[in-house]
Design a protein around this nucleic acid. Structure first.
Length: 441
RNA sequence: UGCCCAGUAGCUCAGCUGGUUAGAGCGGGUGACUGUUAAUCACUAGGUCCGGGGUUCGAGUCCCUGCUGGGCAGCCA
C-alpha cells in the first residue's frame, strides 16, 4: 500500500492508494478523480477505453468524499502540480458517501466551524494543521537538544496564578479545583530542581473574550531557566523564535506561499534573528509620537497612551509596523504585570519582564520575564494581589531553599500558528477550537 | 461584558423608498462534451424569508423582543 507522499518512488509501477475522492471532473472519455489519502493529493485518471464500462459509469456517479481503494499505474505528468498522476485500472468503493455538506465555493465561518470535523479535510486546513504539527516538533526539538527537561505542570490546580483572569471551576471531591491558566509557577519549582525545564500543554481561560485572538482552551509552551536574568531570557526567546520559524519555513515555505498565499518575507527576516529590543519607556515615547502624528481619528483615539498603561491591540499593531521582524519590549511598569515578576532593582516602578510582539499586526506571541526571587518582595506581592498565602506556601518555599535569579516565558502556540500561516483567526489553528460560544464539535 | 453588523434554497448571497406567482451562482438530479484543474454547457427539482409579538388594506422589507452568528473594544497567549 502506497501513500501519496511517497508516490515519486513508484513511477511506472502498479500500486494501490487508499483514500477519499474529494472532487471529480470529467468528459465523455475521461473521469478525473481527485484523491486525498491524508499524506497528499493526487489526480487519478479513468480512460473509458481502458477500464470496465460499469466501473466508469459507477465512478461518474460516485458522490464526493466517498472512500475508495484505487489501483493503477503511477505516471509522471507535467500537467500535475504533484508531478505525478495515477492511470486507473480498478476502483473499489469502500463507502459511497451521502451528499457532502461542504461545497466547492465559499462558505461562511460559522458554517465551516459547525462542520469542523469535515472542514479539516480541506487543502488549506491540511497546511495549517501540518504547520502546527511541525511547529510543535520544532519547539520540542529546540528545548530537548539544549538541556531542558520536559516537566509537565498539572492542569488541575488549587489557585489562580495571575489573579485577575477568570478560571474554569470544577468540583473536586468536596472542594473546588481550577483548570490551569498557566504552567509557569510549577516550572519555577522545576527549574530549581533541574536547572532548565519546560512544559507544553493546554491552558484554560474563562474570560469572556470573543475576538480573533482568543480561545478558552489553548496550548502554551513555557520554559524556565535557573541562574538567568531577563537579558538571558530575551537571548533565549530570540534564538528560540528564529530557530523554530526557520525550521517551519524549510518544511512548509512552498505550501505557505502556494496554498495559503502567504508572503513569507517577515518569516524569513524572523529566521535571521536580530530582533530589536525596546524598553517600555522608549516604546511609550514612540507611541506618543505616533499618536501625535496620526491623522486617522479612529486610530488616533486608540493610540493615546500614558506611561504606566499596558498596550492595547492598536498600540502593538502600530508599534510593530515600524519593524520587519519580531520585537521585544522589556521593563514594563510593575503594576500592570503578574505578581510573580521580578521588581527591578534599578527602578522599583519597573518589572524585569518582556513581551515579544510579532510583526504584521499579530501582536503578543511571547510573554515572560525574570521572576521575583526575594522572599519578602514575593510575599508582599501575594498580599498586594489579595491572593491567599496558604495556596502559595510551596511557591514561597522556593525562595527559602536556595533561591536564585531565574527567568522564563510562555509562547502561545495558536497565535504563533496564526501568524506563520497569515490567518485572520486563531480558531483555524487548532483541530477543534473552544471559544466562548462553541463547545461542539 | 459594552458597542456595531448580519440571519432569505443544502451552501454563498441579491431582493431599492412596504405592493401581486421570492431570484442568481454553487451543490443535488438528468443529459452533452477527447485531459479536466473551484472544468464547461443545457434542462430540472429545491423556500415555515431565524422564533415570537406589533404597525398596515398589504411585511422578506418597518417597529419591539428573544435566539444564533460575525466584527471591534477591554483582558490576555
Amino acid at each position: 500500500m502506497v501513500r501519496i507522499e511517497d508516490i515519486a518512488q513508484h513511477e511506472g509501477s502498479d500500486i494501490q492508494l487508499r483514500g477519499w475522492m474529494f472532487n471529480r471532473r470529467g468528459s465523455k472519455r475521461f473521469i478525473f478523480m481527485q484523491i486525498r489519502d491524508g499524506s497528499g493529493f493526487i489526480q487519478a485518471v479513468l480512460n473509458r477505453e481502458e477500464v470496465d464500462e460499469t466501473l466508469f459509469d459507477q465512478i461518474k456517479r460516485l458522490p464526493l468524499e466517498s472512500s475508495v481503494v484505487v489501483t493503477g499505474t503511477v505516471a509522471a505528468d507535467t500537467r500535475s502540480k504533484l508531478g505525478f498522476e495515477l492511470h486507473v485500472k480498478g476502483v473499489e468503493v469502500v463507502h459511497s458517501a451521502e451528499e457532502y455538506p461542504i461545497g466547492k465555493k465559499e462558505h461562511g465561518p460559522d458554517f465551516l466551524m459547525q462542520h469542523r470535523h469535515l472542514w479539516i479535510r480541506s487543502r488549506r486546513q491540511h497546511v495549517v494543521l501540518r504547520v502546527r504539527h511541525s511547529l510543535v516538533k520544532a519547539i520540542r526539538d529546540y528545548f530537548d537538544s539544549r538541556g531542558f527537561l520536559l516537566f509537565d505542570s498539572p492542569l488541575l490546580t488549587a489557585n489562580a496564578c495571575e489573579g485577575t483572569s477568570t478560571l474554569f471551576e470544577t468540583p473536586y471531591f468536596g472542594k473546588m479545583a481550577y483548570l490551569s491558566q498557566s504552567g509557569q509557577l510549577y516550572q519555577e519549582a522545576g527549574a530549581m530542581a533541574f536547572g532548565k525545564t519546560y512544559c507544553f500543554g493546554p491552558t484554560f481561560r474563562a474570560e469572556k473574550s470573543a475576538t480573533r485572538r482568543h480561545l478558552t482552551e489553548f496550548w502554551m509552551i513555557e520554559p524556565e531557566v535557573a541562574f538567568a536574568d531577563n537579558d538571558d531570557n530575551m537571548d533565549l526567546a530570540e534564538d528560540f523564535m528564529a530557530t523554530i520559524i526557520g525550521e517551519v519555513l524549510d518544511k512548509h515555505g512552498d505550501e505557505l506561499r502556494e496554498v495559503l498565499g502567504r508572503d513569507t518575507t517577515a518569516l524569513e527576516k524572523t529566521a535571521e534573528g536580530g530582533f530589536p529590543r525596546i524598553s517600555y519607556d522608549e516604546a511609550i515615547e514612540t507611541l506618543q509620537r505616533l499618536h501625535a502624528e496620526c491623522e486617522d481619528p479612529e486610530t488616533k483615539q486608540h493610540l493615546a497612551i500614558e506611561w504606566g498603561s499596558d498596550f492595547g491591540g492598536r498600540h502593538e499593531t502600530e508599534l510593530t509596523k515600524l519593524y520587519d521582524r519580531p520585537i521585544q519590549v522589556y521593563d514594563w511598569p510593575y503594576a500592570v504585570k503578574a505578581f510573580y515578576m521580578k521588581r527591578s532593582e534599578r527602578d522599583p516602578r519597573l518589572a524585569r519582564c518582556v513581551d515579544m510582539l510579532a510583526p504584521e499586526g499579530y501582536g503578543e506571541i511571547i510573554g515572560g520575564g525574570q521572576r521575583e526571587d526575594n522572599l519578602e518582595v514575593r510575599e508582599a506581592a501575594i498580599d498586594h494581589h489579595q491572593l491567599d498565602p496558604a495556596d502559595f506556601t510551596w511557591f514561597t518555599d522556593l525562595r527559602r531553599y536556595g533561591s536564585v535569579p531565574h527567568a522564563g516565558f510562555g509562547l502561545g502556540l495558536e497565535r504563533t500558528v496564526a501568524w506563520v500561516c497569515g490567518l485572520q483567526h486563531v480558531r483555524e489553528t487548532i483541530p477543534f477550537a473552544r471559544t466562548i460560544d462553541r463547545l461542539n464539535p
